[in-house]
Design a protein around this nucleic acid. Structure first.
Length: 864
RNA sequence: GGGCGUUUAGCUCAGUUGGGAGAGCGCUGCCCUUACAAGGCAGAGGUCGGCGGUUCGAGCCCGUCAACGCCCACCA
């Protein structure tokens, strides 16, 4: 073995070996209980970012452990066709050649997208391999592949037949740049500084006017009413009168509607039914005209009179200018309000009346809410359930049609003759109503999330009743960031319950977002995004994985700092060298794949085996609660501080003693082996590589998860450790060179010590030890560990003043400790109400401090 | 306008049944000790945001205030 760990060398070796062995397939454990995860499918044209790296590492860690525990563990991979995102990418490519999709035509363009997908679609899956993710590639799916498309179509048709999908004229969010409708959640609202323009709307008859306030003066061109609240005294007499709309001179009524806020603005609102959701509702209630004054390019339509053809923002200024000129402008106030932007391209969206397809979600939300309320699906951490409920309860109908070319076509046909609408799984050939008319297929495609929401069961073969569906659905856990609870998790719940009668997953493990070290959002656009593949190159995939898993406290954002990955790399080096140590001191091939704990362990062995047992149990407990960062933090510290720093050093002595070496070799081998197993889910490449040094040529990935060894008990090890630490500190404080042996007499009235201590005190603290009472040889320093004292002659070794300072400090510490204990113990309430073991513990503490003080006092006296 | 989160060592963060404050990085001193200098040993550093309450006992539970952040909302 080389003396240093080289991640890139290690990581190039194992992925194909695992895959060739079929280790990623659940069939590797044919008799195990099912355990399943479906990957949140990344965009097919995307590249792996830090968020994926975190999300997928968590899933891989879960799957690898379950696989080792013997479960039939399925991790199903795949990608999302990502309608609007992918189309945008390809359109940008075309734009470089000075072309638009319309130059190609729909068919050619879609072909082009498929070509692009074939070219770049494997990129992210290749990157997943680099990261070591053990997904079952034989089951890889794509939201646009044949089976999933069939599922989409069946779902659409059934929902339509059930009246849960309908087509209607509604206000939708339109992106003038992407040229498509968007759903509510594809719109990002941002608070912006704007202006509230107050406009005088004069009555047709008589004097006077009503002042309305608007942030979008250009929409006045489409006004068909002014609305006031029915209880508003100010406008009591105005209701029913007619207004002459400025600039256009259209006569519009004043209506009373409860949707108007009394307090806001002037209490009177201009009503533009074709360009505002609230106005649309008011318009419906009062039978108002809906005049579209802004078109799909965000330009003023011919209904806008002299403003026709102007861009909406240009028109805003022009309208305002004209109003002012004609004396209708009252005033303009500064006003902060939120403005909707397209989440894909950032363009300000235009609310607009449009004929689109919608899902009627209310009936679907009820069982989805119920399933979380009664615990069939559980969020971790639980507080995310509140967000889920809140969103579900306030959900409005979901606009699912998109005016794009890349996506699942809507299975609807319109008869040219009789206006019949046909929605069917199989393409119809003739109109069932009139049988004569030609059929024209709806040109729109479905929102990408319409197919993603079926993912947990469509990937398993639904609507066919496949073995996979029966075995792995519902899935065990969904791992995802809180940012797509609304987009995806909630919808999967609705669809899973509606179409399979069962929840799509039992647990939802929520993690946070990766942030920069200073807590900002990592994003490509702000140029602060780290590339996980670059980090893999510089530190290794295993170190990146370990650092992410350690940093990810459940449900919290992760400010990522490369220093963590660097630390994880050094940890890998430490593990590497620990195994190298074992290789040099024993026949490593003799280590069995499990068991092999010595029947007659030495005291050092018994101690570390006891600790291993405790850590194994605790690790499993934390892990099962999805507390990965705690679990791996525990393991990291156990491995480094206890196994490497203590046990390996302690083992050196018995390894030199042929009588004791056998038990220590067995322990060393077993402990390192179990450590490799426990670490494997987080750092699979390194542990697999080291595993190949020992054992029988089997793969670690499919070996068994460790059972905690039967506890042998800690013995006197902790007292010895305290003594060694005390002696090292003594040496450090008195600046005694490590090369200078310290002659010391160990006094042990309670018989805690053992003969074998002497070797360790020699090798680990540089002390030559004799056992006995304090020697009568002048002033002595003392190092105290419980009732054990190590006496060290002052003469020639220690500066008396320094020693006095050291003792005085120790006395001060002990006195403080004693005072705190004393205060508790003299409180009668404490004795009465605290549990007996807490009181006993406090008494023991006070006792120990007292004893220690007595010894320290005696020594101070000796110093004179 | 609602809801949620955060506030703990110089920095970034852990700390889930309330019972003696932790990690990584950084810092100080010593050491190339035959697994590892990508290392070892020893150490410094915290009124756990403020105030109040519950409790024998609070970083942890309750109330309140403050700062920062996020999400949701038909703020014309």
């Amino acid at each position: 073995m080389k003396s240093t760990y080289d991640p890139s060398a290690v990581e190039s070796r194992w992925y194909t070996a695992w895959e060739d062995a079929g280790a990623f397939r659940p069939e590797t454990n044919p008799d195990g209980a099912p355990y399943s995860i479906v990957i949140p499918p990344p965009n097919v044209t995307g590249v792996l970012h830090m968020g994926h790296a975190l999300d997928l590492t968590i899933q891989d860690v879960l799957i690898r452990r379950k696989r080792m525990q013997g479960y039939r563990a399925l991790w199903l991979p795949g990608t999302d066709h990502a309608g609007i995102a992918t189309q945008n990418v390809v359109e940008r490519e075309l734009a470089k050649e000075g072309m638009s999709r319309h130059d190609l035509g729909r068919e050619k363009f879609v072909e082009q997208v498929w070509t692009w997908k074939a070219k770049s679609g494997n990129r992210i899956t290749e990157q997943m391999r680099t990261m070591g993710f053990s997904t079952d590639w034989t089951r890889e799916r794509f939201t646009f592949d044949e089976g999933l498309s069939k599922a989409v179509r069946k779902v659409f048709v059934q929902l339509y037949d059930e009246g849960l999908i309908y087509r209607g004229n509604r206000i939708i969010n339109w992106c003038p740049r992407c040229h498509t409708a968007l759903s509510e959640i594809e719109v990002e609202h941002e608070d912006e500084a704007g202006e509230l323009t107050h406009i005088k709307y004069p009555f047709v008859e008589g004097d006077g006017h009503i002042t309305v306030a608007t942030t979008r003066p250009e929409t006045m061109l489409g006004d068909t009413a002014v609305a006031v609240h029915p209880d508003d005294e100010r406008y009591r007499d105005a209701v029913g009168r007619l207004i002459r709309l400025p600039l256009l001179d259209r006569e519009i009524p004043v209506v009373a509607d409860e949707g108007v806020e009394l307090e806001f603005g002037t209490g009177a609102v201009k009503v533009t039914p074709a360009h505002d959701p609230l106005d649309f509702e008011i318009g419906q209630r009062h039978g108002l005209d809906e005049i579209q004054v802004i078109d799909t390019e965000a330009r003023i339509t011919e209904h806008g009179g002299r403003f026709a053809g102007q861009d909406r923002f240009e028109a805003r200024e022009a309208v305002r200018h004209e109003l002012k000129k004609r004396g209708f402008l009252e005033r303009i106030d500064d006003h902060h309000h939120s403005v909707g932007h397209c989440s894909r391209c950032g363009t300000v969206v235009e609310p607009m009346l449009s004929l689109q397809w919608f899902v009627k979600v209310k009936p679907l939300t009820i069982p989805a809410i119920e399933a979380v309320k009664d615990g069939r699906t559980r969020f971790v951490p639980k507080r995310w359930e509140n967000n889920y409920f809140h969103w579900m309860e306030n959900l409005r109908d979901w606009c699912i049609s998109r005016q794009l070319w890349w996506g699942h076509g809507i299975p609807a046909w319109y008869c040219d003759d009789c206006d019949e609408v046909i929605v069917a799984e199989d393409d119809p050939t003739s109109c069932p109503s009139c049988a004569s008319g030609d059929l024209t297929r709806d040109e729109d495609v479905l929102d990408t999330w319409f197919s993603s929401q079926l993912w947990p069961f469509s990937t398993m073969g639904w609507p066919e009743e496949t073995d996979d569906l029966a075995t792995y659905y519902p899935t065990t856990v969904l791992v995802t960031g809180f940012d797509i609870i609304y987009f995806w998790v909630a919808r999967m719940m609705m669809m899973g319950l509606h179409f399979t009668g069962d929840v799509p997953f039992a647990d939802v493990s929520i993690h946070g977002l990766i942030r920069t070290p200073d807590g900002r959002k990592m994003s490509k656009s702000s140029g602060n995004a780290l590339d996980p593949l670059d980090l893999v190159e510089r530190y290794g995939a295993d170190p990146l994985r370990l650092s992410l898993i350690q940093a990810a406290a459940p449900g919290h954002d992760v400010p990522y700092d490369e220093a963590w990955t660097d630390a994880a790399r050094r940890f890998g080096n430490k593990v590497w060298n620990a195994l190298r140590f074992a290789v040099e001191h024993m026949e490593i091939r003799d280590v069995p794949a499990s068991g092999g704990y010595p029947a007659d362990p030495g005291p050092e062995d018994a101690w570390i085996l006891g600790r291993l047992a405790e850590v194994t149990v605790e690790f499993d407990r934390l892990f099962d609660d999805y507390r990965f960062s705690d679990a791996y933090g525990l393991l990291y510290n156990f491995a480094w501080a206890e196994v490497f720093d203590w046990y390996l050093e302690l083992a050196k002595t018995p390894l030199r003693d042929e009588k004791r070496a056998a038990a220590t070799r067995a322990t060393l081998g077993a402990v390192l082996r179990d450590l490799l197993k426990l670490l494997h889910p987080a750092i699979p490449f390194l542990t697999e590589d080291l595993w190949s040094e020992l054992g029988d040529g089997s793969l670690l990935i499919t070996t068994s998860w460790p059972e905690p060894p039967a506890v042998a008990g800690p013995g006197s090890m902790s007292t010895l450790q305290d003594l060694i630490i005390g002696l090292r500190r003594f040496r450090s404080e008195h600046q005694i060179s490590p090369k200078t042996p310290i002659e010391t007499t160990v006094s042990d009235p309670d018989g805690l010590s053992e003969p074998w201590w002497a070797d360790h005190l020699s090798s680990l603290a540089g002390c030559n030890v004799v056992y006995g009472e304090a020697p009568d040889a002048g002033a002595m320093s003392r190092v105290i560990a419980g009732s054990v004292q190590a006496f060290i002659p002052l003469e020639g070794l220690v500066d008396i003043d320094a020693e006095r300072t050291r003792i005085e400090k120790a006395i001060a510490d002990s006195e403080g400790e004693l005072a705190r204990s004393h205060a508790k113990l003299t409180n009668p309430n404490f004795r009465d109400r605290a549990p007996a073991e807490v009181v006993a513990g406090e008494e023991a503490k006070a006792d120990a401090a007292q004893q220690r003080l007595a010894k320290l006092g005696a020594q101070l006296e000796e110093l004179g």
